[in-house]
Amino acid sequence: MSEQDIVIIGLALATFAIRIGGFYLGSRLPETGFWAASFNALPGCLIASLLAVMLVAGGTQEYIAAGLSLTIALTTRNLPLTMVAGILSIWALRHFEMFV
């Protein structure tokens, strides 16, 4: 078996274990009070954290493009439009070498 096959099989098994393990872990936690409030807040907190980690890796151009995307997202509430705005603004900032 090649090294590539080992990685594919190993990563597939480990990833599936994580996915199914999360569900069983979640099922065992109480449905009211502290844990329920934490769980309901989890989606927003996780996406906020993900965005923070993505943006920390970027520079001024990424921050400006993110700010423009946020403005479009808040005013239009439209996902495809926000994606297009984000791509166009980062492309323009890089192409015209603004705020390097």
């Binding site: 965005l51 990424e62 493009a65 995307s69 439209n78 994606m83």
Partner: peptide, 11 residues
């Protein structure tokens, strides 16, 4: 940058 923008809208 597509997913950064997408996750901003989703957030």
């Amino acid at each position: 940058f597509a997913f950064t923008a997408a996750f901003i809208a989703i957030l």
